[in-house]
Amino acid sequence: MLISQRDDHRHNFFRTRDLSNVLATVIDQGQLMSNFGPSLLRFYAAESGLKFLLNRTEKVPFEYEVADQNLPLDSVASFPGRIEGYSHDLPRMLSRLKVSAATVNVPAGPFKVVKGYKNGQQFALKGAHEAWRYGLEVDAGDQVQLERFLTDVIAYVEAEI
């Protein structure tokens, strides 16, 4: 498993955020399918930023920090509340950080794939990165909701960092 430290997450937040903005300016925004690249990068920027904040403000440890305490490997794997346990669950991270709905409105979902393998597939917000990673087209209304959410999360992280 690769290890990334807290500051790696902070730097990655800025890198992926900036790269998503650059990519979005070069893509023809008239094509919904072209949004999956910038959307995926925004998702990962939001995830990196939230994990940085969880570690810094809530003192949720990274697995390597627990391992550095020379605990047995089985206790590291089952360590409750470590950053890696949040995976891609942005709403759960926001909840732990006590971010108000006025700051970041979390769309309820489920969201729908309209073009790609098995049209009509539904997914939760934490699975949005998979839809974009695999190049599936998300319903236009859902795409707007997800983009608005990511924009709000990125703005929140920028203000907190």
Score class of each variant (00 low, 15 high):
Tyr156Cys: 08
Arg92Met: 08
Phe52His: 12
Gln145Leu: 14
Asp152Glu: 15
Gly120Thr: 05
Lys51Ser: 00
Asp68Glu: 12
Pro91Ser: 12
Leu125Val: 09
Gly37Arg: 14
Thr57Leu: 15
Asp139Trp: 04
Lys51Phe: 01
Tyr134Ser: 10
Ser87Ala: 12
Thr151Phe: 09
Lys112Ser: 14
Gly116Val: 04
Asn21Cys: 05
Val60Ser: 00
Gln122Arg: 15
Lys126Ile: 02
Leu19Lys: 07
Ser48Gly: 05
Ala102Trp: 12
Leu125Lys: 04
Arg133Gly: 08
Val157His: 12
Arg133Asn: 05
Gly127Arg: 09
Ala140Tyr: 11
Glu130Lys: 09
Glu130Met: 11
Leu2Ser: 08
Gln69Leu: 13
Ala124Gly: 10
Arg6Met: 11
Ala155Thr: 10
Gln145Asn: 09
Leu90Ser: 03
Leu71Asp: 07
Ser20His: 07
Phe36Cys: 15
Lys115Cys: 06
Arg92Pro: 04
Tyr134Asp: 13
Asn21Ala: 11
Asp152Trp: 04
Leu71Pro: 03
Gln121Val: 07
Thr25Arg: 13
Tyr134Ala: 09
Asn105Val: 03
Arg10Cys: 02
Ile154Leu: 10
Glu160Met: 13
Met1His: 10
Gly85Gln: 07
Lys98Leu: 08
Glu47Arg: 02
Pro107Ser: 03
Arg56Trp: 06
Glu137Pro: 03
Thr25Trp: 09
Ile161Arg: 09
Asp28Asn: 13
Asn119Met: 12
Gln29Arg: 09
Val113Tyr: 05
Glu158Met: 10
Glu147Val: 12
Leu32Gly: 14
Ser48Glu: 04
Asn35Thr: 12
Val22Lys: 15
Val76Asn: 01
Leu54Gly: 03
Asn119Cys: 10
Val157Arg: 13
Leu125Thr: 06
Val99Gln: 06
Gly109Ser: 07
Met1Tyr: 10
Asp7Ile: 11
Gln121Ala: 13
Ala108Ser: 14
Gly127Lys: 11
Ser20Glu: 02
Gly85Arg: 02
Asp8Glu: 08
Gln5Glu: 14
Asp28Ser: 10
Met93Thr: 00
Asp28Ala: 12
Val113Phe: 02
Lys51Asn: 01
Val114Met: 11
Asp74His: 13
Lys112Cys: 15
Tyr44Arg: 05
Leu146Ala: 03
Tyr64Val: 05
Ser75Val: 11
Leu50Asp: 00
Arg15Trp: 06
Leu90Glu: 02
Asp139Glu: 15
Ala159His: 12
Arg6Gln: 11
Leu71Met: 12
Asn55Gly: 03
Ser87Tyr: 05
Asn55Arg: 02
Asn35Arg: 15
His129Glu: 08
Glu47Asn: 03
Lys118Glu: 15
Asp8Trp: 05
Phe62Trp: 01
Leu40Met: 08
Trp132Val: 05
Asp18Ser: 11
Arg133Gln: 11
Pro80Ile: 03
Val144Trp: 11
Asp74Met: 08
Arg133Asp: 06
Val138Ile: 15
Val76Ser: 01
Gln145Ile: 00
Lys51His: 01
Val157Asn: 12
Tyr156Arg: 06
Leu125Gln: 08
Ser39Arg: 14
Asp89Gly: 04
Asn105Thr: 13
Arg96Trp: 00
Pro110Phe: 02
Phe111Cys: 13
Arg42Gly: 04
His129Pro: 07
Tyr86Gln: 01
Leu136Ala: 06
Ala102Glu: 15
Arg148Asp: 08
Ser48Lys: 03
Gly81Thr: 01
